[in-house]
Computed example of a mutant assay.
Amino acid sequence: MKICIIGSGIAGLTTAFALCGHPGAELVVYERDIHFGGRADVGPGGEHCPRFFMDDYRHLLRILGMIKGPDGRTVHEMLRRVRRFAHTESTGWVEISHLYRMMAKEIPLREKLRVLWAWRPSPLLAERHFSGRGDNRYGSARNYSAIPLARTAANLFRSKTAYALPGATDEYLVDPWVTHLRERGVTLTADRRVSRIEPSGGTVRVHTPAGAEEFDAVVVTAFVPDLVALLDASRIDHAVDEDGHTHCVAFTVDLDAREAVLREPGPVLYSRDGINVLVQPEAGRCVVLCTLSSRTDEEYVREKVRLHLDLRHPLRRVRTRPNQRPGEAILVGDYLRPDRILRRPFPGVYFAGSAIHNSYPIDSAEGAARSALTAAALIRRNLGLRAAQGRDTDGD
């Protein structure tokens, strides 16, 4: 049986992990970019975001417990609990016991109300009245609705702790995962764009610049804009809308080794003025995510980072990544239903990814993993594959 996985993000890597090891199953992963990892890759612009792993990432954490990292420990064992600091007007920086400041008992009620009032003219609406260079024009309120907002609110009570990698996502997550898959016979090819797919008898024909290949099953893990482009190019009747989602800017900043903030024993998250700064002392750097900040230009963010971290020395290097392009960064977008993506049946084609319907309340790596495990379970059932040992973590 030949199985093609389109995309090497968390969903694609999870699908390959769940299916590798089956006798007679040949797995191929095609990634359009030169880096593996999808939105978890690390390119010239640095990290896509400060990558957190929540304490309720049940499926993903189990998988990471079976992948060896660069120092012999599993990726799960390398995760470090994140200390969380929030800034208040009355007391300055306060370490809080909850991941979300609005749920933290250490923050006085008057400070929480002050924060809510400050967010009333939310920069998420800034796209509607963009006025010039430096404004936060990356926000969008177009894909917010009652159900995903309710899911997010419910998650505030479930997920209280976050974990982070000691350094770069490619070094500590993507590369070990790719190595793990290759050692188990999976073929992963970067810089291989799939231009279209089409039915071919009882198989699916996949077209790339290298030619056309026949597969017994194809799992599409492309994010929504790329999913729409692929289905349109394949002339497949579908019901996917390319809605605008929350879009933000991330900065990867290398710090001078003499900075006091690097003396912390593990990762620390500082949040103020709509800017979240994850400091990774072992890597000598921080990753900055601008979500509710009034501006996202580099000069403004650099000064905010210097202020928040009380830096005393020049920044060594700053890389800027606008999360690829508008439409590719979701906070609480509505999920797609896999059974409603195609208006007509297309046997042998499956879908996975963080935007696909799953049981996790917020679009995330865990959501991508769960949808991928569900797709893998369907493939095993439809192709008659027995679950490989240690790969029975089907999604909810």
Rank of each mutant, 00 (worst) to 15 (best):
E214Y: 03
F251G: 05
L231C: 08
D216M: 01
P209R: 12
P199H: 11
D243T: 07
G244D: 06
A217N: 04
A212K: 15
L255G: 08
I197S: 08
T221S: 11
S234C: 13
P225C: 00
V240L: 04
E198Q: 09
H245S: 14
T246V: 14
T221I: 02
V218S: 02
F223M: 05
G211T: 08
F223H: 06
V219A: 10
V224G: 03
A250F: 00
V206S: 10
T187P: 01
E183M: 01
V220L: 12
A212F: 07
A229Y: 12
V240W: 07
T252R: 09
A190T: 12
V228H: 11
E214P: 00
R184G: 09
C248M: 13
R258T: 08
F251T: 05
V194E: 05
D243K: 07
F251D: 00
R205G: 04
R193H: 11
R258M: 05
H247E: 12
L230G: 11
S200Q: 10
R258L: 06
H207A: 12
G211P: 05
L231R: 14
H247A: 11
S195N: 14
R205D: 06
H207K: 10
I236A: 08
H245N: 13
E183D: 07
G201W: 00
R235F: 04
E213S: 15
A239S: 09
H207W: 05
V228E: 09
V220C: 12
R235Y: 04
V224T: 15
F215V: 01
V186Q: 07
T187Q: 11
G211E: 11
E213I: 03
R193P: 00
